[in-house]
Design a binder for these strands. Structure first.
Lengths: 151, 151
DNA sequence: GTGGTTGCAAACCCTTTGCACGGCA
DNA sequence: TGCCGTGCAAAGGGTTTGCAACCAC
């Protein structure tokens, strides 16, 4: 899951952006921190190795990276904005009771949804994307993995 | 879609809450405005008939109503919080380019998802709810008389 | 009566903005 | 060198908070 600095540089350049230390640092931090960091997480991480970086700059860089699809934004109800370094299409699993958000990806599911919406088109509406928010909680007991779906 | 004041009162009381004019007014406004109002929308509406109601109170009342499951919160990336008076399980359709959010409800879809996740349980995770965010845009077509999805 | 609610305004927090300076291409 | 990008600090805007007064039960 770790991407080399050179690969990140290339990604920035390929997006048509100038490669700056700040952009590189933010992009690296989003990828390194992994679990959908908040801006606070990112600032904390960034200040270790780039003490000079300004908060406003981090916000601007994040906006730029999102606009150029190098990262994406994630948000649930009543939460601050988080960021995601993985740009492949995927869904999100929200762990109630902890601040964890994990990714969920399955082609079979996406095909299922695609089929469904092909048959059940919404009149006057063109679907760009269908995202799932899978909400629930982690189970302490490892044996108990195969159950329960909301009624 | 319109619910009587008495029914709303009853809902508040059944939730174990005191029935106050403010709670009644906010709950009524959420239901009356329908299309996932923001706090701003609600305040505008409320000031017409309840000029005295305080902004802070509206926020507190909304929190209370959400906590007691009389309404729910809706949010997408980069948006302010909105509220929903419909508590039945349903999904949301986000209309890019306008601030419209409509509801989507279909039992066949829910059964499909239920089946899917029964077969593809997430290890160590108990699913409470699966929400779809259907993102796309309205098609501008004057021939299309019923271009919005039925609420 | 009395404990839950409200009104009010200040505080808060995350985020955005404006502008002069700095550094990438 | 030209222009995009950054640092900084102040402003913005939605939301929360603290507390005295109020009122639903």
């Amino acid at each position: 899951m770790k991407i080399s600095i050179n690969k990140l540089k290339e990604n920035i350049r390929n997006a048509g952006l100038r490669v700056t230390p700040q952009r590189l640092a933010v992009l690296e931090a989003v990828n390194m921190l992994g679990n959908h960091p908040t801006v606070e997480h990112l600032l904390q991480q960034l200040h270790k190795r780039h003490p000079g970086i300004a908060t406003g700059t981090v916000y601007k860089v994040l906006d730029t990276l999102v606009a150029h699809q190098l990262i994406s934004r994630v948000k649930t109800d009543h939460e601050v904005t988080r960021y995601d370094g993985i740009m492949d299409h995927h869904h999100h699993v929200y762990h109630q009771g902890s601040d964890k958000i994990t990714d969920y990806q399955d082609q079979e599911l996406d095909i299922l949804l695609q089929e469904y919406f092909r048959k059940h088109a919404i009149p006057g509406f063109c679907i760009r994307e269908v995202r799932l928010q899978i909400i629930g909680e982690s189970i302490e007991d490892e044996r108990n993995t195969n159950d329960t779906f909301p009624k």
